[in-house]
Design a protein around this nucleic acid. Structure first.
Lengths: 156, 156
DNA sequence: CGTGAAATGCGGAGTTA
DNA sequence: TAACTCCGCATTTCACG
C-alpha cells in the first residue's frame, strides 16, 4: 500500500499523541474530518499500528527502580527462545524487552518498587529459567521515548 | 493522591489500548460513563499519564533495521550529559533512549532503513559528538512492549 | 440525564489517466 | 469510463457538565 504525505502526517501525529480525536487530527492536517476518518480507518485496517500505549508516570505509581536486565542463554534454539519470551510476558514488572543478536540474547526493561523487589524479580522469577547462562543488571537513571523516525524527515 | 482499584483498572486498560473511548473504558469497569469520565479526567489532571504513544509497524514503513547503540562518554558532568541528551532528541531514527548507571552511559534504540543508514547514523550523526569514548552496536531481532506493571498484580 | 459535539457512513463533485 | 480522493451532509453515538 502506498502512503502519501497526509498518511505520514497522521502516523506522525498519533505516534506522539495517540489519544487525539479524529477531529483534532483532521484540523491539524487541514482536511475534513470525514476524509481523515477514512484514512485513519484504512491505516488501522492495513496494520500500520501495532498498539496504542499510555506511557504512565511510574514514580507516581510507586515504581522507583528501573533497570535493564541483560541475559545470555545457554542455547539458542528457536523453541527455547520462544518459551523464554512467553515467560517474560508473564513476569510482573516487565515494561519492554528486546531479543538481540550478539553476546546478550535479551535485554529486559523492568520497573519495580524497590531493590527488594528487584532482587526477588531476578532471583525468584528470572533465574529459575533453566537455560539462563548469565544475568547482568544495570540501573536506568532516565529513559525517554523519542519516536523520531526517519520517514518523517520531510516535515522539518 | 490515593488510587483505588477502579483507577488502577483505568490505567491498566489505557496502558495497552490508549485509544479506547471513555465509554469503552466505562463498560469494561462496569461503571457509568460519567463516573469513568471524571476519574479519567482526574488521573490526567494529576499527571498519571506521561504520554500516549502509537506503536507503529516499522516494517511497513520501510524501517527494516533496528539496533541498540551502547555509548560510553569520556566525562560524566551533568552539562555534558544534558547536551548529549539534547543531541539524541534531534537525531532522526531514534526511537527510545536510556541513560544508564554503570559501564554504558547511554543505550539508544534506533530504527533505520538499511545498513547504509545505520552506518551513516553512527559515523555521521553520532560519532562527531566530541565526548564519546566508545560505541557498541547490537542488532535487535525483535522487541515488544509488555507493560506488565506490578501494581496491576491483583487483577490476575 | 440532557445538550452539544464528535464519530461514522454515504452520495456526489472534482481530478486524472 | 474507471479509479481516486475529498467534502458536505445526515444519522448515530458519545463526551461532559
Amino acid at each position: 500500500m502506498k502512503l502519501d504525505q497526509k498518511d505520514i502526517q497522521i502516523l506522525n501525529l498519533l505516534q506522539n499523541n495517540a489519544r487525539l480525536s479524529n477531529k483534532e487530527v483532521a484540523a491539524e492536517l487541514d482536511i475534513a474530518p470525514s476524509t481523515c476518518h477514512e484514512r485513519l480507518k484504512r491505516l488501522t485496517r492495513e496494520g500500520f499500528f501495532k498498539a496504542f500505549n499510555a506511557d504512565l508516570n511510574l514514580k507516581k505509581l510507586g515504581i522507583n527502580v528501573q533497570v535493564i536486565v541483560a541475559i545470555r542463554l545457554k542455547k539458542h534454539e528457536r523453541e527455547i527462545i520462544n518459551s523464554f519470551i512467553k515467560r517474560i510476558r508473564t513476569l510482573k514488572g516487565v515494561i519492554k524487552f528486546y531479543h538481540m543478536a550478539g553476546d546478550t540474547d535479551f535485554m529486559i526493561h523492568i520497573g519495580v518498587k524497590d531493590s527488594d523487589d528487584l532482587r526477588s524479580f531476578i532471583l525468584d522469577k528470572l533465574a529459575n529459567f533453566s537455560y539462563i547462562d548469565h544475568i547482568e543488571t544495570a540501573m536506568i537513571f532516565y529513559d525517554e521515548c523519542v519516536c523520531n523516525l526517519s520517514i518523517f524527515e520531510s516535515e522539518n
